[in-house]
């Protein structure tokens, strides 16, 4: 069994080109579980956790967060606390302390679970995923990259380098929330994030993503449009929730889980928006 551990990005890419069938390994919290459940039988491993570029968080014109940064590091990053606290907050809810020591941002994205907690936060933060392959680098928004449960559109030989996002402005209001069976260790049954800007009491540039509800991460443009330019208001938040619930129904159709999910989506969205608005007053 080959277990490759490149220590430079160039080396990682050429090893990946040579062994496109090998399993990319970061924290292993999805890979090792899938292997144990018999859903994955790696031919070899390509461990990306020693590649320095993937381990960095830096704050230049935009913010770059490397794919191999762990949830613990996201949670404790002073840079993110200042410029994208939403991502730190989402990371702080992943799994358990033990899982957060290992689980990475890139693994969360590539695994493309509908319950992944970083995905709605990154979507609401309008993050672009930076991907490198033999052809060079490309950027993709999460709703384009993630095509369905477990389906992340990476070509063979491509590696996620990280994400870039714009720092939050002072007027930014945000919230993240999830509901699941237990507090720790629950893979979210519904999670979501919102970012908006408050200017003169009105909401602008609302970006709303409710995850684990649809087959892939989507922003709810209808609800966003309802909120744009309006004052924060409980009834309005409920109507936005109804718009989200309606959009989920259109996207997924009526299913067994809809009876639970649709009314929950209304309340859940309204609470997300209330929390974001409340954070503004603090």
């Amino acid at each position: 069994m080959e277990f490759l551990r490149p220590q430079a990005l160039e080396e990682a890419l050429s090893l990946l080109a040579e062994h496109p069938a090998y399993t990319i390994l970061a924290g292993g919290t999805d890979v090792v579980v899938r292997r144990r459940e018999g859903r994955l039988a790696p031919e070899g491993y390509l461990d990306v956790t020693l590649v320095p570029e993937l381990r960095e968080i830096w704050n230049g014109e935009s913010i770059f967060v490397g794919a191999a940064v762990t949830c613990r590091e996201l949670e404790e990053s002073p840079i993110l606390a200042a410029v994208c606290p939403l991502l730190a907050a989402a990371a702080s809810t992943v799994g358990s302390p033990q899982i957060r020591s290992r689980a990475t941002l890139g693994g969360n994205v590539a695994n493309a679970s509908p319950a992944a907690d970083l995905i709605p936060a990154l979507t609401a933060a309008d993050a672009q995923v930076v991907i490198q392959g033999r052809q060079g680098t490309r950027r993709a928004a999460l709703p384009d990259l993630i095509q369905g449960p477990g389906r992340c559109a990476l070509e063979p030989g491509e590696l996620i380098l990280g994400v870039v996002l714009e720092p939050f402005r002072e007027t930014a209001r945000w919230s993240f929330d999830k509901i699941g069976r237990r507090n720790a260790l629950a893979i979210a049954r519904m999670n979501g994030a919102v970012v908006l800007e408050e200017e003169g009491g009105q909401m602008r540039n609302v970006r709303l993503c409710v995850g684990a509800a649809a087959r892939r991460p989507v922003r709810f443009r209808g609800a966003e449009a309802l909120l744009e330019g309006q004052n924060p208001d409980k009834d309005l938040f409920r109507r936005a929730g109804e718009a989200v619930s309606q959009a989920i129904l259109e996207e997924t159709g009526m299913r067994e889980s809809s009876r639970y999910k649709l009314p929950v989506a209304v309340e859940f969205t309204a609470r997300l928006l209330e929390n974001a608005a409340r954070r503004g007053q603090a």
């Binding site: 277990f3 390994l25 579980v33 144990r36 613990r72 302390p97 033990q98 290992r102």
Partner: peptide, 25 residues
């Protein structure tokens, strides 16, 4: 599978689930 914590050990100062940590790392 990382859910119970019975296998918790400390690696480089961080708690981890030994059942999910590969020797290669």
């Amino acid at each position: 599978v990382g859910e119970c914590g019975a296998c918790t050990v400390i690696v480089d100062g961080e708690p981890v689930n030994a059942c999910l940590y590969l020797a290669g790392q």
